[in-house]
Design a protein around this nucleic acid. Structure first.
Lengths: 158, 158
DNA sequence: CATGTTCGACAACCAGGTTTACGATTCCGA
DNA sequence: TCGGAATCGTAAACCTGGTTGTCGAACATG
């Protein structure tokens, strides 16, 4: 029950946010490993999500994820080695190399979307749908709108 | 406003949890850097918190943080180099080396506690105290109780 | 006293991030 | 049109934080 206690210390909130996040992510990847994707790490789901169905470039990916283009490029390297992404030359610009999901990448992203949805339903079964929805609304209200570059195309696109 | 929408996709929740956490942590360290602690990284606060006022050992610290004793030892090395922690021999057991906070470490931890509290009040001013308290209650309800080893002494002790 | 366990340390390695640099390509304005 | 500026991908060097494996020193116990 929510009690308005002014004595609640502030450090509980970040700790619980991190614990909630990691609980969700760890549960997801435990199930994902049993569905043919044992190599998918937590960060990879966000990367695949940011690549999107239309593909992107390493520089643009870095902007979406809020990291340097070099860091994005190295993560793309690993996901290419794992078979989740592929690089193709851009016929319109010889400097650019399009990063696209492979079939395996699409499969992994689709499965994680299904699992995330199931995990959210589990939270909703415990807390009630209204409480989960309220938590999402509240978190959205206190999060900078451009945090994960949710405004740029690619996120959840498709 | 919280609307009970069964069509809300599950992947929004982890993204918002992570964004909320990072928003809080980034805000904290931006202010902490201006108060004489520019070298404190996000993970350091949790380590100092886990060391506690009574001190601990590298092995025990690893258990509290859920990482290997080697990883805990390396992090202690860095915090010793930064002046936040110190190692002293345990007179009762020549194998053990007690890890204790220095004055600088106590100062950093005290300041972050004050800042976290202020940040929580900022959230409460935006959302209302009841909503923040409800979020904490809900997150606690869906988080494994031993996640950060909150049960062991050291966390928030003192 | 011999054996097993624990502690701290070291080495090697991996993932993910940074800054700096650079060649190749494209864009754009004088 | 052409030359400088900007962009793209890549590489190198480095840092942080994590892993596993090993090992000597120091306890604990039969």
């Amino acid at each position: 029950m929510a009690t308005a206690d002014p004595e609640r210390p502030g450090f509980l909130l970040p700790l619980l946010l991190l614990a909630g996040f990691r609980t969700l992510i760890d549960d997801l990847h435990a199930e994902l490993a049993g569905q043919g994707h044992p190599d998918l790490r937590p960060v990879h789901g966000f990367v695949l999500q940011a690549v999107g169905v239309d593909g992107t470039t390493a520089s643009e990916l870095g902007q979406r994820l809020g990291v340097s283009k070099q860091a994005a490029g190295k993560t793309v390297d690993r996901l290419v080695a794992l078979g989740y992404l592929e690089r193709v030359d851009d016929p319109a610009d010889a400097r650019r190399k399009l990063v696209r999901m492979t079939e395996k990448g699409v499969d992994g992203l689709r499965r994680s979307a299904v699992l995330f949805d199931a995990l959210r339903k589990r939270w909703a079964a415990t807390l009630g749908e209204e409480r989960v929805a309220a938590m999402e609304d509240d978190l959205r209200a206190v999060t900078p709108p451009n945090f994960f570059r949710l405004d740029v195309p690619g996120w959840f696109g498709g």
